[in-house]
Simulated assay, not measured.
Amino acid sequence: MRIMETITTRRSIRKFTDEPVTKEHVLAVLEAGRWAPSGLNNQPWRFLVLNARDSRKQALEGCTKYAHVVRGAQVLIVVFLDRKAKYHHEKDCQGAGACIQNMLLAIHGLGLGGVWLGEIINQEKEVHQVLGTDAEHLELMAVVALGHPASGGSSSRRELSQLMVEPF
């Protein structure tokens, strides 16, 4: 796909089929995230991948009001920031956002569907407990749910003129 087409046709997909996602596709998505820009090129993101058979996946459903998305996804990519690799909180959070967006674009480009679950950070303590991860070392940024789309997504955008602080 051409990049502008990929960007403008990507949608958040919240319903998935039971068809498995290949390891090669998951690795391609992670590679896309790995290549995101970061301040000082510190690359502070860390990933934890849960497949449909991972027992922690079901427990993670209880950590978000979007349990149905977690339940239906074939793969979950939990995105953290490594607290020891960070140098500036806001800049590192921006880098994590770029990382997640790269992954969502790769998911779409591979013909898969995905969605960024950000609300789950409100339950960060519970997520760490469920996953057995170290809260002192890792800061939860989001979970990316992905799979083969069972339905399309929809979206609209404001006119560019409505987003401009002053005319260009």
Rank of each mutant, 00 (worst) to 15 (best):
2 R>Q: 15
3 I>D: 00
3 I>R: 14
3 I>Q: 11
5 E>V: 10
5 E>D: 15
6 T>K: 15
9 T>L: 08
16 F>V: 09
17 T>E: 05
18 D>R: 07
24 E>K: 14
25 H>V: 00
25 H>W: 00
26 V>S: 01
27 L>G: 00
30 L>E: 10
30 L>T: 06
32 A>V: 08
32 A>E: 08
35 W>P: 03
36 A>H: 01
38 S>F: 03
41 N>D: 00
44 P>C: 06
46 R>C: 01
47 F>P: 02
49 V>M: 10
49 V>Y: 07
51 N>G: 02
52 A>Q: 06
52 A>T: 00
53 R>V: 01
54 D>K: 12
54 D>G: 10
54 D>N: 12
54 D>A: 10
55 S>W: 06
56 R>M: 10
58 Q>D: 15
58 Q>I: 14
60 L>D: 04
61 E>Y: 03
63 C>E: 08
67 A>Y: 09
69 V>T: 11
69 V>H: 06
75 V>K: 01
76 L>K: 05
78 V>G: 08
79 V>W: 03
82 D>A: 03
82 D>W: 02
89 H>D: 11
89 H>Y: 12
89 H>K: 10
94 Q>N: 13
95 G>I: 01
97 G>S: 04
97 G>Y: 03
98 A>Y: 05
98 A>S: 09
99 C>T: 09
100 I>G: 04
100 I>L: 11
103 M>G: 12
105 L>W: 14
105 L>T: 14
105 L>D: 15
107 I>S: 06
107 I>W: 01
108 H>N: 13
113 G>V: 02
115 V>Q: 07
117 L>H: 08
119 E>G: 13
121 I>L: 11
121 I>F: 11
126 E>H: 10
126 E>Y: 05
129 Q>S: 15
131 L>A: 13
135 A>I: 02
139 E>I: 06
139 E>S: 11
141 M>H: 07
141 M>F: 08
143 V>L: 08
143 V>H: 06
143 V>Q: 05
144 V>Q: 03
146 L>F: 03
147 G>N: 02
150 A>P: 07
156 S>A: 14
157 R>Q: 12
158 R>E: 15
158 R>P: 06
160 L>Q: 12
161 S>R: 00
161 S>E: 15
162 Q>T: 10
165 V>K: 14
165 V>H: 13
166 E>W: 13
167 P>W: 14
168 F>R: 15
